[in-house]
C-alpha cells in the first residue's frame, strides 16, 4: 500500500489519500469475483484490472481537472474520492463485515515451542512485494517508458516539449498504482474483515511507511512498510490494538522532525 502511494507520488506528485478507498473497492470486486468463480487467482486478476481501471477513472474525472489549479486542491480531492468510494461501497455491498479467504495458511510458524506472529501467508505477501519493487524499479530506471514517466512527473512542460504524451503517462501511473494497491488490498484482506472502512487504519500505516521511507523511494516504502508492520504487531501484541495508530503517528512525527525527506529520499534542492 505504501508502494502505491509512492508510485502515485512519483508519477504525479500527488499524495493520493484515495488509495485505500480504491483498494477497498477492488477488494470487494475481488470478493465478488471469488464468489462467482471460486478461484482465488481469478479474484486477484479481477482486483488488478479493476484497480487499473479505477485508477484511470479517478485520474481522468477528478485529478486532471483539479490539477489545473494548485497543489493542495488535488490532495483535498483525493479525500473526496476516498469518501465517495466508501459511501459507494456501503450502498452496493453494505457495511456488514465479510471474510476474505486466504490463499493458504494464516496460522503462524511454530518454532521453539511457540507460535510466532509470522505465517506462510506473510511470507507470500513479503515475496510478492519484493518482486513488485524489483520489477517497478527496473521499469522506472531502465526502460524508456520509465524515463518518460519520471520526466512527466518531474517536469511536465519539458517532457511535453520533448514530445512525451504526458497525460498518457500520468494515466498510466495511476493505473499501475491502482493495480498495486489492489494487489495489496487482496493480499491483506484475509487479515481484516472486509468492510467499506476496514482499510482506513492502513492509510495511516501506509502513509507513515511511505513518508518515513521517503516518498520518492520504492525500496524505502516497502522496507519501512515491513518495518512499521513489525513495530506495530509488537505494539498490538504487547499492549492494546487500539494503540497501533498512535504509535504509527508518533513514528511519523519523529521522522518528520529528524529526517523530513525520508530515510531513502533524496534531499530536495533546486536551483535555476
Amino acid at each position: 500500500m505504501a508502494l502505491a502511494l509512492v508510485l502515485v507520488w512519483r508519477s504525479t506528485r500527488v499524495v493520493n489519500f484515495a488509495q485505500v478507498g480504491q483498494a477497498m473497492f477492488t477488494t470487494f470486486l475481488a470478493l465478488a469475483a471469488y464468489q462467482l468463480s471460486g478461484n482465488w487467482f481469478v479474484a486477484l486478476i479481477a482486483a488488478i484490472v479493476g484497480g487499473a481501471v479505477l485508477g484511470v477513472i479517478v485520474h481522468a474525472l477528478v485529478m486532471r481537472p483539479v490539477r489545473r489549479q494548485d497543489g493542495s486542491g488535488a490532495i483535498i480531492a483525493t479525500f473526496g474520492v476516498l469518501i465517495s468510494l466508501q459511501a459507494g461501497a456501503s450502498i452496493i455491498w453494505g457495511v456488514d463485515p465479510r471474510a476474505y479467504p486466504p490463499l493458504f495458511d494464516v496460522v503462524g510458524y511454530e518454532a521453539f515451542g511457540r507460535t510466532w506472529p509470522f505465517a506462510p501467508y506473510d511470507a507470500l505477501i513479503l515475496g510478492v512485494m519484493v518482486i513488485l519493487v524489483l520489477a517497478l524499479t527496473v521499469v522506472f530506471t531502465r526502460t524508456s517508458l520509465g524515463l518518460r514517466m519520471r520526466a512527466s512527473a518531474f517536469n511536465p512542460t519539458v517532457a511535453r516539449l520533448s514530445g512525451v504524451r504526458v497525460s498518457q503517462m500520468l494515466a498510466l501511473g495511476w493505473a499501475i498504482a491502482g493495480s498495486i494497491g489492489a494487489i495489496a488490498g487482496v493480499l491483506i484482506a484475509p487479515r481484516f474483515s472486509v468492510t467499506p472502512y476496514s482499510l482506513d487504519i492502513l492509510l495511516i500505516l501506509a502513509f507513515t511507511a511511505a513518508v518515513i521511507g521517503g516518498l520518492d523511494s520504492l525500496v524505502g516504502a516497502v522496507a519501512f512498510g515491513v518495518g512499521t508492520g513489525l513495530v506495530l504487531s509488537l505494539v498490538t501484541g504487547y499492549s492494546d490494538a487500539g494503540n497501533a495508530p498512535i504509535v504509527a503517528l508518533a513514528l511519523l512525527a519523529l521522522n518528520l522532525l529528524l529526517k523530513p525527506q525520508g530515510v531513502f529520499g533524496h534531499h530536495q534542492s533546486r536551483s535555476v
Binding site: L147, A151, N155, S162, H266, R270, V272
Partner: peptide, 19 residues
C-alpha cells in the same frame, strides 16, 4: 531558464528528447 530535469542524469535528459 535552462530547462533541464535536475533529478535525471545528463544522458537521460538527452534521451528524453525524440522518444
Amino acid at each position: 531558464g535552462r530547462s533541464t530535469i535536475p533529478e535525471l542524469s545528463v544522458e537521460d535528459n538527452l534521451k528524453l528528447g525524440g522518444m
